[in-house]
Amino acid sequence: MFGLLADPIGQTTRLNVETSMTTITAAESVPVADPTAPLLSLRGVNKSFGAVDVLRGVDIDIRPGRVTALVGDNGAGKSTLIKGIAGIHSFDAGEYTFEGKPVTVHSPKDSNALGIEVVYQDLALCDNLDVVQNMYLGRELKKSALLDEDTMEAKAKETLSGLSVRTLKSVRTLVASLSGGQRQTVAIARAVLWNSRIVILDEPTAALGVAQTEQVLLLVRRLADRGLGVVLISHNLTDVFQVADDIAVLYLGQMVAQVEAKSVTNNQVVELITAGRSGDLGLKHPMADVIEEGASKTGGVSA
């Protein structure tokens, strides 16, 4: 699956929405669905809270079997973007397509129905409930009117062992008594319990030690290897380069680049995050119009 990386985005080293879209459309002549076609695409997404424009014309593609790192400084709009994808608050404008079809997502239930799962930074786990209860929270299995504890417990164990998670002693342990890495594992396992297609991870390694970070990153890689589209939000570029296939950079609410991780250096990504521009990547130079008028190569988003 990773041999099929000859996609236009990687080659042009620049986010050029129009180009990538047309190429993908061309690929549709192949009878079998293109395995690298984005599962989820956003085009020109806007979101504002009152007078503050948090997202301005954001485009992003999430592909199956790939880890897309979403990076950006504090306040760049990363959280707003994933909350919009998850349906916690709707976007003000823009296209939201899933497997090529336009969809409307207005609540977490909508995104869950599409197979999109978000693992939040604060984990969204209830400390007072056990591992099984947390994994099934909001979607408990029932046998007539009562909870089907046995099936839930068995499936939770199955999912955890399917992810090669062996650090949990019992699935009936209260989440309050788990370590940070274990909690993260539970949160991720919950996300894949539902035949999910896309898993979005918000800073999964933020509060973890070295060994636990390594474990979680392995788990992230495993998700992508199972063919899921994975979005990884992280401030830690070491983590990002270790595990990500693509890097998407948000800068002050604009998507300044979505590039293949191999094609950029650490420094370039830092420049993109802090200045929104690195060489010919990212936002166009303030003087770009003068330098190359009407150049088709300007891939920066001009909202």
């Binding site: 977490p108 604060d122 786990l125 400390d127 007072n128 909001g138």
Partner: peptide
């Protein structure tokens, strides 16, 4: 859901 709401309403909400 009662216990989840009392334990962490925000988390409960986010999980539906």
């Amino acid at each position: 859901h009662v216990l989840a709401t009392g334990g962490n309403a925000e988390a409960a909400n986010a999980t539906g």
